[in-house]
């Protein structure tokens, strides 16, 4: 048995259509993670010990348990609380929550990379906390974070095939369906792999370009 190029060509439209869902899930998930990650950072900096401590361990917990189990958890558990989620919504929620834990670490590293002297200078100029964050800290903390976030966007993109486990019709699920109908798995699975490779390499190139363009130093996360 060899690779059937004609068959591969014939299933391309179907797979490219499914790629839309994969990309949509990635961007929705990343949007959620970006915001939620910020919430974690704020909670972790809370003056109430118990809040900071809980947030710290919640992030640690989310980071060190499999995203697949988290996907199942959201998909099968929410109905028990009377909230039936569509597979796509559950999947995006799980991706967003999982990666928010990573982004919380990225934000923290970004903020901690600002030298203490900057805070002291802001204090010396009598800036209030909002001004300090808005005008001094965030403008310096944000740029080095951009390429790291780009890397996590690519990582999340590569985790979307897990949504097939709860029947989201993304790339891998579509390939599996084609496989079970035609009894040919090699072509659809190879195409899916090639698409992932192509897009990840392009994205990595884009991240590198941003890094060089803005001369960003690597963050220690």
């Amino acid at each position: 048995m060899t690779f059937d190029w004609a068959f591969a060509w014939s299933i391309m439209p179907q797979l490219l259509w499914a790629l839309r869902i994969t990309i949509l899930a990635t961007f929705l998930g990343m949007g959620l993670a970006t915001v939620l990650g910020l919430v974690w950072v704020l909670l972790r900096r809370s003056p109430w010990r118990i809040v900071a401590w809980t947030a710290h361990y919640a992030v640690e917990f989310i980071r060190s348990t499999p995203i697949l189990v988290q996907i199942y958890f959201l998909f099968y558990m929410m109905p028990e609380f009377g909230l039936r989620l569509s597979p796509m919504v559950a999947g995006v929620l799980a991706l967003g929550i999982h990666y928010s834990a990573y982004l919380a670490e990225v934000y923290r590293a970004g903020i901690e990379s600002i030298p203490k002297g900057q805070w002291e200078a802001a204090r010396a100029l009598n800036l209030n906390p909002v001004q300090t964050w808005q005008r001094i800290i965030l403008p310096q903390a944000f740029p080095p974070i951009i390429p790291v976030m780009g890397n996590y966007l690519v990582a999340m993109f590569k985790d979307t095939p897990m949504l097939s486990a709860i029947t989201v019709l993304e790339l891998l699920q579509t390939a599996k369906i084609i496989g079970s109908e035609s009894f040919r798995y090699l072509e659809p699975l190879t195409i899916v792999g090639a698409l992932f490779l192509l897009l990840s390499l392009l994205a990595a190139q884009a991240v590198r370009w941003v890094e060089r363009r803005f001369d960003l130093k690597e963050l220690n996360v």
Binding site: L172, A175, L189, F196, S200
Partner: peptide, 20 residues
């Protein structure tokens, strides 16, 4: 690094048997 772990798993599990 560029292809997804799950896709690799499926490829090795469902794809390789086709090569015997």
């Amino acid at each position: 690094r560029g292809t997804s772990a799950l896709v690799q798993l499926f490829w090795f599990f469902y794809g390789l048997p086709l090569f015997g």
